[in-house]
Design a protein around this nucleic acid. Structure first.
Lengths: 231, 231
DNA sequence: ATATCGCATTTGCTATAGCAAACAACAAGA
DNA sequence: TCTTGTTGTTTGCTATAGCAAATGCGATAT
């Protein structure tokens, strides 16, 4: 019997370490972990119903990506982002995502653009219904879908790392109070520029999107506890 | 007894995981690990005289930094860099290190510049004595010392990640055969521009340094086995 | 000589155990 | 009341053990 092309997709389910890693990652970008919070691996393991080993591995992995830090005793915690560092992350995202946007504009097909538009609809919906959590989640999907189009895997990975570093702080500070920015959402200018094949304009729109968003966060960061040691 | 300010620096020796991590990292950037090589954690543990646990953790850490990959079975190995991906890494380094160079030019003190010059002397020495390993090591020290001056920790971390990804391939292909580039070494132009406080010129020199070096590697990459599966 | 089957080995993954350092809480003394 | 000392607990770190899947090798059959 041949059986050449009808084999099941192999499955190969992911390891527990991987599952825990993804779970923590989602918790970081989703705001379920806040800056300053400590993650005790044994407690986490008990909570998740697994042994300490995979939890510890997942935590160390996040530490090596700078998404978490280890205190003097070796306990993992979510770092607090000082404004300076947040600004640096923003500048780097502007550069990297701007570059990717220009490239994506050159490579995107009409189908790609339609997909992006669908994702932006999610952002718009969250905005209309005053649902910050939804906005942030859909916004992330939009940005990474765009990065995917640029076919720059190394760059994408760097941006993922930056996203993870800023995630908890952004989630903490991004509150419904934000006054809806006037005029078109930068994503809309971005999509229009991409449709027109205008890479520089698309890049500028992306930069505006990032900086406008960052301005809200920075403002909240400043007004929040400045050099607070925190508990 | 008081003992306020005379206490020893605490020491707090690093963990085995950390030691193994550093060891592997050095092996990657130092060319002792070549693309395609597999790293079996139990074998490595036996070789290093430790238990498999810290070795496994160190390997996973490197995997999460894209310095290593896991094959279908979960065995860590040094990825082969296709030319496309190498080019992407170079472009990102040009952007990131270029930016850092401009900033470092504004912040550097005369003492900083003297330290950089001393480091470059090491590179020049390695070049004179036709010692590629020395050149690569001293070159790395030079670049990271410069990054340090820019006071951009997030960017520096990204560059470290890129360095680690490209390290094994560069070490593999950087051979003494390289014809000494004519004229001044780009580092010298760079140092001169920094001394003059000319940030744009310093940035251009850095970009030239990176691209010239990359050109040699790319050439070797092309002439080497193209899509070779390798053993 | 080639192909197929079976078994021993390799190897990653997860759980568990013990150790030592750090920490916290409480008791005793000044 | 405040300090000091003691003890029990927490917690990271390392080692070890068992499992299961994959691999590799050798034997047997055609």
């Amino acid at each position: 019997m041949d059986g050449g092309t009808m084999l099941a997709p192999v499955a190969r389910e992911e390891s527990l370490t991987e599952k825990v890693y993804r779970s923590l990652r989602g918790a970081l970008t989703g705001g379920r972990l806040v800056p300053g919070q400590r993650l005790v691996h044994r407690a986490l393991a008990a909570e998740l119903g697994v042994s300490p080993t995979p939890v510890r591995e997942a935590l160390l992995r996040l530490v090596s990506e700078a998404a978490l830090e280890l205190d003097a005793r070796g306990i993992a915690w979510v770092p607090r982002l000082v404004p300076e560092r947040y600004q640096e992350i923003v500048e780097l995202r502007v550069e990297l995502e701007g570059r990717a946007t220009a490239r994506a504009t050159q490579l995107a097909t009409p189908a790609d653009l339609a997909a992006l538009r669908a994702l932006h609809a999610g952002v718009a919906e969250g905005r209309r219904t005053r649902n910050p959590a939804l906005v942030l989640r859909e916004n992330e999907r939009f940005h990474f879908a765009l990065l995917e189009l640029a076919r720059m895997p190394v760059l994408t990975r760097l941006v993922e790392s930056l996203w993870l570093q800023a995630g908890p702080t952004i989630n903490l500070l991004f509150r419904p109070g934000a006054p809806a920015v006037q005029g078109a959402h930068p994503h809309e200018d971005l999509l229009a520029a991409m449709a027109a094949g205008d890479a520089p304009a698309a890049r500028r729109a992306m930069e505006r999107d990032l900086r406008e968003h960052a301005a809200l966060i920075t403002q909240a960061l400043q007004s929040a506890a400045p050099p607070t040691p925190g508990k």
